[in-house]
Design a protein around this nucleic acid. Structure first.
Length: 504
RNA sequence: GGCGCCAUAGUCUAUCGGUUAGGACGCGGCCCUUUCAAGGCUGAGAGACGGGUUCGACUCCCGUUGGCGCUACCA
């Protein structure tokens, strides 16, 4: 049987390096076995998914050199490869489960479910659905449905006995069925949840091996049960360790740059980044850690994956990237990379109009624009603290700005400007007072080219990093402070919206 | 709280019952060098703890501790 693996990103945000790692492992495994590697878009979260995010993720994975054989852009015999285009298929599958008695309609309100969970937690018993709607007669269910009560479809899960999951990396993992929740399969809007869509698609797309993040281990029993309900063979499973922050928590953008875009923007070469990630799944021979994709395909082995979650070690990435820069590129190729990185027409084209009105000699350009060609910049804390903001307001301003950086749907100067307007409101200050330290944080000095345009051009990732750096220099903010301040911001936003509605 | 996963230097790892516990990043020193890098040589640095099993445990088993994940009509 031909090996078929997949990576199944959810287009709900920036392309994550963890996704790249999982994609790489699936790619290496497939290629080593002369199989096929596919890409599927899991966009069943209607609220958070976006076409823009999908485009960016595909682009980022392509940049890394991971070529998929089947996918939403290249097609293939098992399409469509986008879950939002397969809704009919899931509806059929859900009805099958319903009529076979493997699933049931649940009319419980979210409030009841929430109370239930709190109660269960208090009692120290496994949290999960209590099966109330399981006792509904067909008549009662039909009545509720006719009355227009919203419902979800849940899978039935045995309340007794246990189940064993075979994991290629961890061996047998067993669970008591009573600790497995009666998972929602179809949401009240009719869309499937990940669990349903994922099982149906992996089967339809003839996936033979599922290599996915460790966070899915506890869902595996549900998935296994679904395969049984459908009468399908389950793919082999391997749960990969999660990449970690230096403090060992799961790699997260709050603490670290996690976006592939960030690493590209910082000037890491794709071959270095992929090599670095590959080091977590390939044991180098004779100490030589520099390997191209083809070499990694040859040497890859699931048994080389250590189960302890590896810290994303930027220092080692830096070293590897340096080697690629000086050992694998001749001067011409190097020059070309530099051009592609930031000395290209579109980047220069964006920057030039900001600089032109502000210089007297072309040689002023260097000091004025150097921050556009840097990753992290040196910031003088004293300058950061200048301005009319007291220390608490200053830190608050940066916390709020960080929140806005994550929240903004569109990364564009006008939207950024509006965001800073909101921040000024919350602080009860004028925009110009609030904005001053941000010039220092972003451009390295208080006088520079327009801030919001600069931020747009630098990109969300670099901006987030510079703001975080500035906040750290100011002493940081406690989790408590951050939470309270962020809440103020969203309350203020809600109030503003309300006012606007009243006016309209 | 419940369930599950994990555990060799600061970090990434090798070892798959018998090794002076090997390598890489980082860090220190020396050499090379107009500077700085790079490069070469070199140094410090590890089996969380407690019980077993065994002639012999980093390696197998149990417990403790610690880290992590899941605990949603998110994936």
């Amino acid at each position: 049987m031909m090996v078929r693996t997949r990576v199944a990103p959810s287009p709900t945000g920036d392309p994550h390096v963890g996704t790249a790692y999982v994609a790489l492992v699936n790619y290496l495994f497939a290629k080593q076995h002369a199989g096929r590697f596919l890409l599927r878009i899991e966009d069943t979260d209607r609220v958070r998914s976006s076409d823009a995010a999908e485009t960016v993720i595909l682009d980022a994975l392509r940049w890394l050199g991971l070529q998929w054989d089947e996918g939403p852009d290249v097609g293939g015999p098992h399409g469509p490869y986008r879950q939002s285009e397969r809704l009919q298929r899931y509806a059929v599958a859900a009805n099958e489960l319903l009529s076979d008695g493997h699933a049931f309609k649940c009319f419980c309100s979210v409030e009841r479910l929430e109370e239930l969970r709190q109660e269960q937690r208090k009692l120290g018993i496994p949290p999960g659905y209590d099966g109330r709607c399981l006792t509904l007669t067909a008549g009662e269910a039909a009545q509720a449905e006719a009355a227009g009560t919203p419902f979800v479809v849940r899978m039935k899960v045995p309340r007794e006995g246990s189940v064993v999951i075979d994991d290629l990396l961890r061996g047998e993992i067993s669970f008591e069925w009573r600790t497995v929740d009666m998972q929602v399969l179809v949401k009240s809007d009719g869309w499937p949840t990940y669990h349903l869509a994922n099982v149906v698609d992996d089967h339809d797309m003839e996936i033979t091996h599922v290599m996915r993040g460790e966070e899915w281990i506890s869902s595996a029993p549900k998935h296994k049960l679904l395969y049984e309900y459908f009468g399908w063979t389950m793919p082999k499973l391997a749960h990969l360790p999660l990449l970690r922050n230096p403090d060992r928590s799961k790699l997260s953008k709050r603490k670290n740059p996690t976006s592939i875009l960030f690493y590209r923007r910082m000037g890491y070469l794709p071959e270095a980044l992929i090599n670095f990630l590959g080091l977590l799944a390939v044991t180098p021979v004779e100490g030589e850690e520099m390997m191209d994709l083809a070499t990694m395909v040859a040497r890859f082995g699931l048994e080389h994956i250590s189960l302890g979650g590896p810290i994303f070690d930027v220092a080692k990435l830096d070293w590897l990237n340096g080697r690629y820069l000086r050992e694998r590129l001749d001067l011409a190729a190097f020059e070309q990379r530099v051009r592609d990185w930031a000395l290209n027409e579109s980047y220069l084209g964006a920057i030039a109009p900001l600089a032109q009105p502000r210089i007297e000699r072309l040689s002023d350009l260097g000091p004025l624009l150097s921050f556009f060609f840097a990753g992290r910049i040196d910031v003088d804390v004293a300058q950061l603290r200048s301005a009319k903001l007291d220390d608490a307001s200053l830190r608050k301003a940066f916390v709020l700005a960080l929140a806005e950086v994550d929240a903004l749907a569109l990364w564009e100067a006008g939207a950024i400007n509006a965001a800073f307007g909101r921040i000024a409101d919350v602080l009860g200050k004028r925009l110009r007072e609030v904005v001053r330290p941000f010039y220092v944080a972003i451009a390295g000095r208080a006088q520079s080219v327009p801030l919001f345009d600069s931020m747009q051009i630098l990109g969300r990732d670099l901006v987030r990093e510079r703001l975080r750096n500035a906040l750290d220099l100011l002493g940081g903010a406690t989790a408590k402070e951050q939470e309270a301040w962020r809440r103020e911001l969203s309350a203020n936003g809600a109030a503003a919206r309300q006012a606007a509605e009243v006016q309209a």
